Amino acid sequence: MRVLILGGDGYIGWPTAMHLSAAGHEVTVADNYLRRRLMLQTDNEALFPVPTLDERARLWEAHSGHRVEVRIGDLQDWSVMAALFEEVRPDTVIHYAEQPSAPYSMIDRASADLTLKNNLGVTFNVIHAMREFAPDAHLVKLGTMGEYGTPNIDIEEGWIEIEHKGRSDRFLFPRAAGSLYHTTKVLDTDLLWFYVRAWGLRVTDLMQGPVYGLETEENAGEPRLYSFLNYDEVFGTVLNRFMVQAVAGYPLTVYGKGGQTRGYLHMRDALQCVRLAVETPAAGGELRVFNQFVETFSVNDLAERVRASGARLGLDVGVRTLPNPRKEMEEHYYNPAHTGLLELGLHPTPLTGEEMDRMMKVVRTYRDRIEPDRIFRGVSWTGSAPSAGAEDRQQGRPAA
């Protein structure tokens, strides 16, 4: 297939490009380096430098013999999006091109404004570009399990059957997002559902849980093909952050009671899921939803797994409870369905002790690049940082 990946420079975007090109698809990636710019602006650079997209493509072709085409441009600009679709005429569009951070979206008005306009603007342009240039293409859109929130009932896979006053119907499962970023994802889903009904688009919406890890089949033995590994509280996912904290000797930053439970998956499984969605497309006029995760863990569960791995590797890993800077339930019921991708053939990678140790060893090779001051600065949903450890943070020390 001709596959167009929007947001191809991101944490999952670039690994997806390698994975699908290795599988024989013709891959074009597009990006405007928004994530890189925001990392620089907030002083939250990744654990190690990542080559530009053009250099990544050259490295990948030399490593594998597979080619990835690169296009740089702002996809909020309709002329850029239209030209890209007219050139590529994709069979499949994978849409990652959004500001990806919940904490960033909550920093201040400017960060919220950027998140809202970028995320919805790009999604709107994608929809219209498909209508004009690729009406039979299949859109694979990256959503998030965070759209659902933490309801006190089982979370169904996208849709729910409701009986009310003797009648029944099928609806999108109710959403209760916990940040502005997650709210833009909810609005994406609503936009897509409208245009699926109006124009007969074919769409798969992947409700993805937090992803962890770096190594995939494609980048094995070639660290320059690794994706970003962020360990700050703005762009880092929790398990990646905990691993870096453990290696740095920085107490693991558990927010509040640590009972917040979510569905997680390894990078390798995220790539499996996307490829399964690409190669078994939704039907015309269908909004297909998959809950994309492998296992559920609480924050305390993850902290204990990192602590145990550290002990096996000779690291003394501490844990510190901090006032929760987010607005979220810290103890809650959580039982989401996730059978759709398993039925398509997903072979999950469980978070075993062996896998945990393997990831920790990779992170440990970059120990000298860790900047403790970036780990925790108290980005708060209310606009004010928690008071615990404030003096330590100002001095760039772990709050112990």
Rank of each mutant, 00 (worst) to 15 (best):
L4D: 07
I5Q: 09
L6H: 04
L6K: 05
G8M: 08
Y11L: 15
Y11D: 07
I12A: 15
W14H: 02
P15G: 10
A17C: 06
M18P: 06
H19A: 12
H25D: 10
H25E: 09
V27F: 11
V29T: 04
A30M: 01
A30I: 01
N32R: 13
Y33R: 15
R37C: 09
R37D: 13
M39P: 01
M39G: 10
L40C: 11
D43L: 14
E45I: 13
A46H: 13
F48K: 00
P49M: 05
P51Y: 01
P51L: 03
T52A: 13
D54K: 13
D54T: 14
D54M: 12
R56Q: 11
A57P: 00
W60H: 15
E61R: 15
H63W: 11
H63T: 11
S64D: 04
G65W: 12
G65M: 10
R67D: 03
E69H: 13
E69M: 07
E69P: 02
V70N: 08
R71K: 14
I72C: 05
I72Y: 03
I72N: 03
I72L: 14
D74F: 06
Q76D: 02
D77W: 02
S79L: 05
V80M: 11
V80E: 08
V80Y: 08
M81A: 15
A83I: 03
A83T: 04
F85G: 00
E86S: 10
E87C: 04
R89Y: 01
D91Q: 05
T92V: 15
E98A: 15
E98R: 11
Q99W: 06
P100R: 02
A102I: 00
P103V: 04
P103K: 08
Y104S: 00
S105H: 07
M106T: 10
I107S: 11
D108F: 10
R109K: 14
L114M: 15
L114C: 05
L114V: 14
T115F: 10
L116F: 11
N118T: 14
L120V: 14
G121R: 07
T123R: 03
F124Y: 14
F124S: 14
F124K: 14
V126S: 03
I127M: 12
H128L: 14
A129H: 06
A134I: 06
D136W: 01
A137L: 03
A137Q: 08
H138D: 04
H138V: 07
V140H: 04
K141R: 12
L142C: 12
L142K: 07
T144E: 03
M145Q: 12
M145L: 15
E147K: 05
E147Q: 13
Y148I: 09
Y148H: 08
G149E: 00
G149H: 02
